[in-house]
Design a protein around this nucleic acid. Structure first.
Length: 289
DNA sequence: CCGACGTCCTGCTAGC
DNA sequence: TGCTAGCAGGACGTCG
């Protein structure tokens, strides 16, 4: 793959794709055995999982939540994939590599489930109960990005003067967006990533909410973006990267106006936008329609 | 309260 | 050719 972007960071569409793929394989099965190959990436020991039955699996923000049933308790296993995390089904005949940190074997499932993470920004946490999970994790997350409304966006945006891009990536404000889909949503909404959040009009925030939902819906339909090594648990790749308008395309023509896509650094993140049709802050907001 | 910045980690690549 | 420095970034801790 050409370009300077080599890493595919799992965001809402990738995590949703993983959850959908795993669900029919995991739900109802019992964890026969668990191996923790690298204890630093998780908060539990292998024997805390043994014998647990998977009741359901869901996504919240970028978290994968595996609800368990074990000896009358209902613990929840939560995965965050960080930048390079993967949940893969793999044959036990293939020895796990050095980046495989957790291995689960389930009753009635030939493949084992592996948590693999090259850069180890991801982690797996075990919570004692759903209320514990909410207190420690879920209550801190903002509304889901794929259903976010203009009202919800306005509530977050109008109380902050920080640029709109880092606000969208703040999981306490909106849950599920990362670098790729934030850049794509802002391009779709014709908003410059540096625009102060509290400078956005109700109309602009309405458009941003609409575009964010649309981008995520299409990306989920394409089973996410595969930029380099992101794969779904069955080993297949997503294809939304073919539709990226700006992300990973510095210097290429904007699909809307043909101006060259720019790339800047914003709070340490590579940020891609069209300098022509995403009007710069302080240069007026007149847009053609 | 808010935001900027350093930290974690590995693999790839530009440059000497 | 082989080395190293730099870069990529999600979330969190620290500092101003």
């Amino acid at each position: 793959m050409a370009g300077t972007e080599r890493v595919s960071v799992p965001e809402l569409p990738e995590v949703e794709t993983i959850v959908r793929e795993l669900r029919p394989h995991l739900v109802g099965r019992r964890i026969r055995s668990a191996q923790v190959l690298r204890p630093t990436v998780c908060t539990f020991s292998a024997d805390q999982l043994r014998g647990a039955v998977v009741r359901r699996i869901e996504r919240r923000g970028k978290y994968i939540l595996v609800h368990l049933d074990r000896r009358g308790t209902t613990p929840v296993l939560a995965f965050h994939l960080g930048m390079t995390g993967q949940l893969l089904r793999a044959s036990p005949d293939l020895p796990p590599d050095k980046h495989t940190h957790i291995v689960l074997r389930l009753s009635g499932l030939a493949d084992e489930l592996r948590f693999r993470d090259v850069r180890r920004f991801g982690e797996a946490c075990l919570y004692r109960s759903p209320p514990d999970l909410h207190r420690a994790l879920l209550d801190r997350l903002g509304p889901e990005a794929h259903t976010v409304t203009s009202t919800q966006l306005a509530r977050a945006a109008w109380t902050s003067s920080r640029p709109i891009k880092p606000l969208l990536m703040d999981q306490e404000k909106v849950a599920g967006l990362g670098n790729i889909y934030t850049d794509e949503s802002l391009w779709q909404a014709r908003l410059h990533p540096l625009r102060p959040s509290d400078s956005l009009s109700a109309d602009e925030l309405g458009e941003l909410a609409f575009c964010t939902r649309a981008v995520l819906r299409e990306a989920v339909g394409d089973r996410g973006s595969s930029v380099d090594d992101y794969l779904t648990p069955d080993g297949s790749a997503g294809r939304y990267q073919q539709r990226h308008a700006v992300y990973g395309r510095p210097g290429e023509p904007c699909p809307r106006c043909s101006a060259a896509i720019e790339r800047i650094r914003l709070q340490g993140r590579g940020t891609h936008f069209c300098p022509k049709c995403q009007s710069a802050p302080g240069h007026g907001d007149d847009r053609e329609d």
